[in-house]
Amino acid sequence: MSFINYPAREINCKIVYYGPGLCGKTTNLQFIYKKTNPDAKGKMISLATETERTLFFDFLPLSLGEIRGFKTRFHLYTVPGQVFYDASRKLILKGVDGIIFVADSQIERMEANVESIENLKINLIEQGYSLDSIPYVIQYNKRDLPNAAPIEEMRKLLNPNGVPEFESVASEGPGVFETLKSVAKLVLVELKKGGGG
C-alpha cells in the first residue's frame, strides 16, 4: 500500500498498468510522459526488446506537488504482458495501490484479455489483495481499430462488476488521462480512508 516516507515527507502511490501483451500499456505511459509538464515528472524508464516487448517493467514517476507538506508522487508501472513473464508481474504488483487493466479491443485478443485478467486476479490473491478491494479501473484500448469488439461484449466479458471503464486510443491520447485520473482519485480516496499504508 502507499508508502509514506515521513523523514522525506513523501507519499508514493503505486499504480500498475496490467494487460495482455501488446495491448498498449507502454503506449499509455508514453502518452502521459509526453503530455505532462516536465516539472511534474521524472524520467520514464522503459526498455523493450527489439520486438517492442516491455522488458521487465516501465516506470514513470509523476509528482502532484506538496499536499499537507508531503510531496505526493504517483509511480506508474507497466507489467510485461507476455504470459511467461509472470514472475516479473508478481513482483511489480507488490505494494500496488491501484490497477488499470488495459484491454485490447481487437476481437481476436479477447481470449488474451480474459487470460490476463484471470492472471491478475490470481497474482493479487497470492499477495492478499483482490480486485474487489483495490482501486481498479478498466481501459478498453485501441478503439480506433476496425476490428474492435463492441463495448457491450467487452464489458460482459471483462467488467461484470461494473468498475469504472474508459474507451481509449492510447497512441492518440483519448481516454488515457481519463483513466489515470479515475484510478488516481480512487487511490487518494483509499488513502484518505486510512487504507493507505
Binding site: I4, R68, T72, L188, G196, G197
Partner: peptide
C-alpha cells in the same frame, strides 16, 4: 486530494 482528515499512517 488530501484534506485534514486524510490519514498518513504507513
Amino acid at each position: 486530494v488530501l484534506d485534514d482528515e486524510m490519514s498518513l499512517e504507513s
